[in-house]
Design a protein around this nucleic acid. Structure first.
Lengths: 192, 192, 192, 192
DNA sequence: AATGAATGAGCTTTCATTCAT
DNA sequence: CATGAATGAAAGCTCATTCAT
């Protein structure tokens, strides 16, 4: 693992543990097993790790979604899988993603967030396009625009559950079902 | 305006201008026209203004939504108004809300966010319930759960446009239309 | 003694002891008996004390010269006194003046040095003018321009002796005599 | 040009541009086109280039003076040439000499300054001695001691003009004339 | 001899908080 | 209630120096 990767991994670890404001560069380098100065050979300032972390996280998310969806299953079940995966990712990484978003929001890097998310939106856009071409979802859907809506929708639902709610399992299950139903209707799902 | 309110208004102003991490207590008190020490008579620490700001902001949002929706119009037009309002609120306040959310996320106050948002969800929930009782949206909608979904959906769409996009008007209009269409389908809208 | 004066006195003391590069703000505040942060209430940066010190030093020098010269004595003896005084000031303060000049030279404050020295030059200029009006020194002397030459001359001679030479007393005495003789000739001294 | 010379030249260049405190070893090596570590093969520490630079500068000065004075001209014109040269050297190198002196003053190398200047004083001393042997300047002059006085005098006059003054040409010309007149009288110049 | 990545001690500066008035 | 000078802990960052290659 390169020094840069070490720093990113260590930063993720420490940010999760202590939050952003309380994470010092000294904590990161200690966790990474490198010297204080070495940090600054790879990142020009404390907060500039943020976009790198974000990229790393989003890549993980995309990989997980991409690998987690079963190619052969019908679309409605695939969509269910997508929701499941995003919920479970949010459960696992949601805090850190929220944290990082917060961290980026504080810097001048906000614009980068968009490009970091781009491949995620692309994946969803393709996912919708395929379904549309097979006549499974309504023709009036614009895949690329709806991709953003859907990701926003699922993520915000997941955040509701994991970040704020006292998260009784039941609450989560119910919201997830409501969400799926919502999505099916929104997409005009026709059973193929 | 009481000193406390002065502090809150000043804090909003300064946070917007300089971001959270870069806003010092000294900036806030200067903008508020009070002495450094006075701040601590009203708030125990620098970040403890955050929840107060949040509350203030969300109250404004709810008021705006509540007053902005025309009682007598049909539901689909009301929904359009809601979307319009949330978009325009996000345009105006989105940066500060994101900031505050970020600020709160960094503290132990995260849980408070939920209670601050509660009346907002309640409003939407009632809005849906009314429509449902009038048979305008599908029966299978659970108003309270869908309220959260819808607010999350609309807000994330608005953020897409205003925080990240280069926001050509066209982009915004198209996403808004897609969103409305999405919502109409999701809610199983029947013209009354 | 005001906090600002305390800082200046302490800074002089510490700069002499440790030199400029090795003097930390922490040393100064320790010597001044104040808190680290208090320093920055009075001076915006570590090196910005320099001009203040310089001013203080030059004021001392002028006072010493002014008080040290006997009004009633003949000019040649007064000039001897001036030389004596500048030599002894250089012995006492020369290191710190050199240091400060060095310190100022490193900053953007160099121009200030001129205005700090101005009253010193003025004193000398008046001293010469008086003598000239009494017909004691040649008429072709321009008091204001020669004032600068003479101060530069005496100071550089004194520096030679105290900063570089191994400073045997004899060396010093001889250079001082040479200097006086040099000055008498230069000024075209006529015994009144 | 050897690596060592490259370093010295680069250091001169960078010190002039950025001042001493702000010049980093990394700046010097970049300007010299060598690697960071290579610096330490030639100089044991950052400030140890200083005496080398000083030596280099003073050698240049002596060469310039020595070559610039016309052997065959009468003494008073030669002296005028000396003044001219020292003024023009100060104009060109004065800042860096002041800087270096400052730099050396901060280190333990101060004593070296004396030996660096020695050949300069020697040149002037010989210059005076020759004139004295020809009966052109007064017998009571001690060439070696007056050499130091005169160099100090001319240099401080030149510094006045170039480092501090706003240096109108007129100011400079007048001070230079005053200085020459001052010197002629001081030396008891007799036209041969 | 030359390199340049890595080091880590240590600095300046900031700023939330306190408290005597 | 209000003030604002004073505090001092704490952290980001720099950069001279080293050393494995």
């Amino acid at each position: 693992m390169s020094k840069e990767e070490k720093i990113i991994q260590a930063a993720i670890e420490v940010f999760r543990e202590k939050g952003i404001e309380k994470t010092k560069v000294s904590d990161i380098v200690k966790a990474a097993g490198i010297a204080q100065g070495t940090f600054y050979l790879y990142f020009p300032s404390r907060l500039s790790v943020m976009p790198a972390i974000a990229k790393n996280m989003v890549e993980r998310i995309i990989t997980t979604v991409d690998e987690g969806v079963s190619d052969h299953k019908p679309f409605d079940q695939q969509l269910e899988e997508v929701v499941e995966i995003i919920f479970s990712i949010t459960k696992e990484y949601g805090d850190i993603v929220a944290l990082i978003y917060a961290g980026i929001a504080q810097t001048e890097h906000l614009k980068e967030w968009e490009s970091i998310y781009a491949p995620y939106y692309d994946w969803m856009s393709n996912f919708l396009l395929t379904a549309q071409q097979q006549g499974i979802i309504r023709d009036s859907i614009n895949p690329s625009r709806s991709a953003k809506l859907i990701i926003g929708l699922i993520e915000s639902a997941a955040e509701q559950v994991y970040l704020f709610d006292d998260s009784k399992d039941e609450t989560m299950t119910l919201l997830k079902l409501e969400l799926l139903d919502f999505l099916y209707h929104a997409l005009g799902l026709r059973h193929a």
